[in-house]
Amino acid sequence: MSNPGDYDAVRRDIVAQLKKPDYDDGSAGPVFVRLAWHSAGTYDAKSDTGGSNGAGMRYEAEGGDPANAGLQHGRAFLEPVKEKNPWITYADLWTLAGAVAIEEMGGPKIPWLPGRTDLVDDSKVPPRGRLPDGAQGADHLRFIFNRMGFNDQEIVALAGGHNLGRCHSDRSGFEGPWVNNPTRFSNQFFKLLLRLQWTPKTLANGVRQFVYVDPDAEEGDEQLMMLPTDVALIEDPKMRVWVEKYAEDKDLFFEHFSNVFAKLVELGIRRDASGMVLNTDNVKGGYVSAPKKSNQATGPVQARL
């Protein structure tokens, strides 16, 4: 057991959970990043609701959202960390796990501050439908991300998270990895998006995505894929400018991604001059750490990304 406030110990315990030989591409890193992003991406600036503070995904109202299908695995992978550090809130654990995973997979260091509290019930869980639909276009991306307070440059930078992980037909409906090495953070997503020919393909489940048809591929080789929202980034002139910048300049992308991911996990959080979080939950104030949950993954079967 670590001492309360020993976030370095938590970081080490998160790193110890990254290697998963029997899961996806052998790493829990990408699902940790998606968990942090989805826990924060429900924020609505106008109503000041949602966001990473509260860890609402612990409740069926949010955790059972089809958009969060598959994240039960990421949450379960972090339960041993919660067991060793019972003082940490899930809201801090999930966001810190995303930041640690990005850095451990070769990405930039993500500025991260603690202090998020856990909801004591589901009364403040945001409504479903606030996360992006990968089947849509640029207008949809702006609608979703402008609601959180992001501009075009930040939207494209956040899309660079698709350098990690893969889609699953039994979760988002889409299938396949975006890049050749989905456990190594880079700017490859932007390079491939610009340089390869992306062909529309309708999967057996009726979902439409884009794939690269490699003329040198052998039977059984896995196709790289892009979502309609990814292709929209190069079809929209204002967004394409940033795709080209990030494809050309890895350091610029890393700098901008670090800034926007740090902004993402802070959405809706209010801090005083010393950095203490001012948000409290219901009748309870301060740092409310929810009790440990199950190590077994349970959650929605299918989602949209």
Rank of each mutant, 00 (worst) to 15 (best):
G134T: 05
L96N: 07
A45I: 07
A97D: 02
D44T: 14
N53H: 14
A135C: 11
A69Q: 03
R116M: 15
A61V: 07
K124F: 12
S123K: 15
L93S: 06
S47A: 13
L93G: 02
A99M: 04
S123F: 05
V81W: 08
K84L: 15
A91I: 09
P114S: 07
R34L: 12
D92P: 04
L113S: 15
E62S: 11
Y90K: 01
G64N: 09
W112E: 06
G51W: 11
R116I: 02
D92I: 10
S123V: 04
D48F: 14
K124D: 11
L131Q: 04
G54R: 02
P132G: 01
P80W: 14
A97W: 04
K84V: 07
V125W: 00
L113H: 13
G51F: 14
K124T: 08
A101W: 00
T89H: 09
H73I: 14
R58L: 14
L113F: 14
K124G: 04
L35N: 02
A99S: 15
R58E: 03
G41A: 15
P86I: 09
V100T: 10
I88M: 14
L96R: 09
E83M: 08
A40W: 03
G50R: 03
P80C: 10
P114M: 13
Y90H: 13
Y43L: 00
A97R: 06
A36Y: 07
S39R: 02
Y59R: 02
K84I: 01
K109S: 13
A36V: 02
L113T: 08
R116A: 11
A69H: 01
V33N: 00
L78Y: 07
P114E: 07
G64Y: 03
R128E: 02
P86Y: 11
D44G: 12
R128F: 01
L131R: 06
G64W: 06
A99K: 08
P126Y: 04
A61S: 13
P80G: 09
P127G: 13
